Simulated assay, not measured.
Amino acid sequence: MTVQRPRRTQAERRASTRARILACTAECLLERGYAATTVSAVQERTGLARGTVQHHFPTRAELLIAATTEVVDIRLARFRHEAELLPPGRDRLQSVVDLAWRDLNSPAFFTALDLWVAARTDADLRERLVHEERRVFTEMRRLYVEVLGEPYASDPRAQILVEFTIDLLTGLSMTAMLTGTLGEREAVVRRWKRALAVLVGQLPSDDLLDGSPLPAAAN
């Protein structure tokens, strides 16, 4: 006997359509950027009528403001997934550098940059972004501490070094976004890993400029 599924309520259909629109908007932001994410582009991607999209989000501004949460959720999900894939047995402070570098070179991060620039002249977007960026930073800091584990987690230097790592790699990623010089970027990351090894006492200070590989535990 065929069991018929219960019909979805109007509220459930509305919520499903809204979620579909936001997911497609986030995809468009990630792939095409803020400027190219128009109502028409989103409508085409969803396959819905333009009137349906505008029924849920009457203006482009409302659509993009709502979609910032989707973009942050995508970034956090990817970040958690990358954290779970970190290989065991490696120095955890060095692993945090790898984790941060992958996040700060991801489409979700570059989309965040796009939104930050747009928010400079859009007060409503800026208000939403401030809230969402607090959320993403809070969750990422929690994950960084979790990844670090002991003895780093209880070392007061570790939090400062993680902050320095994020700041340095953010600036490096933003600069490289224009220049596209991958080799130079990777060289800076390697030098910073060596500097961290010196700062936590894994390497002597005169090894800071040494070009030899890092110790196995910190490579």
Rank of each mutant, 00 (worst) to 15 (best):
A187Q: 13
T179L: 08
L208Q: 02
L208A: 10
W192G: 00
G171Y: 04
E184N: 10
E184S: 12
L199R: 07
T175C: 09
L209D: 15
E184A: 14
L199T: 04
L182W: 06
S205R: 08
Q202S: 14
V188F: 04
L208D: 13
E186F: 03
L182C: 05
G180E: 07
T170R: 12
K193S: 14
R191V: 04
G211K: 00
T181M: 09
T175V: 10
L196D: 05
G180P: 09
V200A: 06
V189C: 04
A197Y: 06
T179S: 15
L182V: 13
L196S: 05
L178D: 11
L199D: 05
A195D: 06
D207T: 05
L208Y: 07
A195P: 03
K193F: 06
L209F: 13
L214G: 11
T175P: 01
V188H: 05
P215M: 02
L199E: 09
L208M: 14
V188G: 05
R185M: 11
T175I: 12
S212F: 04
E184I: 03
P215L: 04
L178F: 10
K193R: 15
L178M: 12
L209W: 11
L203S: 09
L182T: 07
L209P: 06
W192H: 10
D206Q: 05
L214I: 04
G180L: 07
D210W: 10
L172I: 05
E186L: 15
T179W: 00
T170A: 08
D210Y: 03
E184L: 11
D206T: 04
G171D: 09
L203Y: 02
L196A: 06
A195L: 15
G201C: 12
L208P: 13
V189P: 06
L172M: 11
E184F: 06
A197N: 02
P213E: 01
